[in-house]
Structures are given as structure tokens and as C-alpha cells.
């Protein structure tokens, strides 16, 4: 990491020098030197353009009454009508609150979980044991959400696994999914179970980049295991952690609707109904493209603001930001 930083600095110093000669000539020279590399970038650029930039003008339909037959350009303008509708909705505030609660709690409990797993795995001596744990913990990632939710529903039913355990300890059986106090724990724990192994891969990769000599030096200085973790391992993966944290904060408002819709019940709407599931239910009343786009656009704008803020805060605190 340190080596890389040095190199990067060296490059940027050189670049600074070139910049004095003018950006254009630098680019031209760089292009001549790395023709093939530029060529290799082209397909990606085309892909990015086709699938990321080109569809963006579709945002227009948030301000129009979209009619498929007329197309995006010719649909009539309605201004902010769909945004106003969303904010006028009596459930607007609740949807916000639930969306933020679910993603906030996921962040609080779900984000540190893979880091912990990675740290624990890093301390394991037996390679075989480490491999087995890794493989086993990845597995749930490959199970489809629908299947996971089916399992949860079965386990939470009044004659399901969890209730049998509760009954064995003298509790009374009930359907756990109908209880609104249990919705967040069920949602978040199952999320962690599904994602912990997969998400820890990136941290394990970062861990393997830490210079082993630092550990040796620490051992000679008499640092114990815990001190090594706190003073070498954690600082070593901190840039990765902060970057992923920023990204995660950027998506605070986008709670996927699939899992919610598969798990919630009208009795748990109060805590479980999020923006995307509400828009989904409304969409059922007939292809409400414009309304869905308006809410999605608003979501995205708030997300970008959150992302930029998180990035700034991270930089202020001396950590590397995204840009």
C-alpha cells in the first residue's frame, strides 16, 4: 500500500509538470504512447454510454404524463405533479422513516459484520478450517431472495422451527412475521446471514495486502494479538472500510422492494412499508411509469447528496474519499 502511494505521488508530480505544458498536448502524447490501452477502453465506454448515459433522458418522464404510444418526447408535460402527489401522500413521512430505519439499522449491524468475520478469519491458523468457513459462509449468497424469504416464512410460522424452539423453552407459539416488533430483527439478521461471507471477501483481499513485516516488527516490540489487530490490521484495511461505508451511505434510501414485499404483512406495514414497496403497490393500479420515475428520481437526488456529504466528512476526518 505504502509503495503504491509513493508511486502514485511520483506519478502525480510528473503529471503536474506536464500539466504546465498544457492538458491537450499531454493527452495527445499519452494517447500516442498508449494507443492500444485506449483502444481497449473503447468497448467499456460504449457500454457505459449505451446503458448509463443514453437511458438518462428517460428521467424526463418524471415531469410528463408518460404514454408509451407517444414516447418520451411527445408525452405531455405535467411539471412537478407527480412529486407533489408523493409529498401530499399521508404516508410519505412514514415511508421515509421506515426506509431510513431499515437501511440505518442494516448499516449499524450489517456493515461491521463482514469486517468482524474477515478479522476473525485472518487470525485463524489452520488453512483448511479457514477455507471451510469461508465456503460455508459464502453459500447463502447464492440462494435467491425468494427462496430465502420462503424459508423465513416457514421458520417463522406458528408451527415452524423458531416457534418450536420458543415452545421448548416454555414460550407461547405465534406467527412471528405478524409481530411488528420482530420485523427489523428478522429482516436484518437474515440479511447478515445471507451476505456476511460474500461481503467479507473484499476485506480479506485488503487484509492480504498488509505488509507481514509490520506484524513481525510489532511482535518484536512486544505487541499482543489484540494490539496487533488494533494497530496494524484495522488501520491497514481502513481505506477499504471507509470507501465501502461511503458507498453504503449513498444507498441508504434504496431499500430493495423484493425482500420487503415477500416478508411484510399488512399488520407490519407500520414499520415495514418502504418507499419502493409503496410505489410498487401503487404501480399495480396501472403502469404508473411517471409516478415511479418521479419517486425514483427524488430518491436518487437525496442519495447523491448523502454520498457527497459522507465523502466530505470522510475526507475531513483524514480518511481517503471516493474522489
Amino acid at each position: 500500500m505504502n509503495d503504491k502511494n509513493k508511486r502514485r505521488q511520483a506519478v502525480s508530480v510528473k503529471a503536474e509538470g506536464r500539466r504546465a505544458q498544457g492538458r491537450g498536448s499531454y493527452l495527445a502524447r499519452d494517447f500516442k504512447r498508449n494507443k492500444l490501452k485506449y483502444l481497449m477502453v473503447i468497448p467499456i465506454l460504449i457500454l457505459l454510454f449505451l446503458f448509463c448515459y443514453r437511458p438518462m433522458y428517460g428521467i424526463l418522464i418524471a415531469f410528463k404524463r408518460y404514454r408509451p404510444a407517444l414516447g418520451v418526447w411527445d408525452s405531455p408535460w405535467v411539471g412537478f405533479q407527480y412529486f407533489e402527489q408523493f409529498f401530499r401522500d399521508p404516508y410519505c413521512w412514514r415511508l421515509f422513516r421506515n426506509t431510513l430505519s431499515i437501511s440505518g439499522l442494516s448499516l449499524l449491524f450489517g456493515f461491521p459484520a463482514p469486517i468482524l468475520l474477515a478479522l476473525l478469519l485472518n487470525e485463524v491458523r489452520s488453512r483448511k478450517f479457514k477455507k471451510v468457513v469461508q465456503t460455508v459462509s459464502y453459500m447463502p449468497h447464492f440462494i435467491s431472495t425468494v427462496v430465502v424469504c420462503g424459508m423465513i416464512t416457514t421458520f417463522c410460522a406458528s408451527d415452524g422451527l423458531f416457534n418450536n424452539i420458543i415452545a421448548a423453552f416454555g414460550g407461547t407459539k405465534s406467527n412471528l412475521l405478524l409481530n411488528k416488533d420482530l420485523f427489523y430483527p428478522i429482516y436484518i439478521i437474515s440479511d447478515i446471514w445471507k451476505g456476511i461471507g460474500w461481503d467479507s471477501i473484499i476485506y480479506l483481499a485488503a487484509l492480504s495486502g498488509i505488509d507481514q513485516e509490520q506484524y513481525e516488527a510489532a511482535k518484536i516490540d512486544g505487541a499482543n494479538r489484540l494490539q496487533q489487530i488494533f494497530h496494524i490490521t484495522l488501520p491497514g484495511i481502513l481505506p477499504t472500510v471507509s470507501m465501502l461505508l461511503i458507498l453504503r451511505i449513498g444507498s441508504l434510501l434504496s431499500v430493495g422492494y423484493e425482500k420487503i414485499i415477500l416478508l411484510y404483512q399488512p399488520t407490519t406495514y407500520e414499520v415495514a412499508d418502504v418507499i419502493s414497496s409503496y410505489v410498487y403497490r401503487r404501480g399495480l393500479m396501472g403502469g404508473e411509469f411517471s409516478y415511479g420515475t418521479a419517486v425514483g428520481l427524488f430518491n436518487s437526488i437525496v442519495s447523491i447528496i448523502l454520498l457527497l456529504t459522507a465523502n466530505k466528512v470522510s475526507k475531513k476526518m483524514g480518511q481517503s474519499g471516493l474522489f
Partner: peptide, 18 residues
């Protein structure tokens, strides 16, 4: 863009309409 796209799943449809 990833965020924008994720947030507005319907936009893709809109684009085809164009």
C-alpha cells in the same frame, strides 16, 4: 449512475419508449 439506475428501475423502460 449505478444509484440513479437502481433508484429508477423504470427509466430503462422509458428509454425504449424514445
Amino acid at each position: 449512475f449505478a444509484l440513479l439506475l437502481a433508484g429508477t428501475m423504470i427509466m430503462g423502460l422509458a428509454a425504449c419508449g424514445g
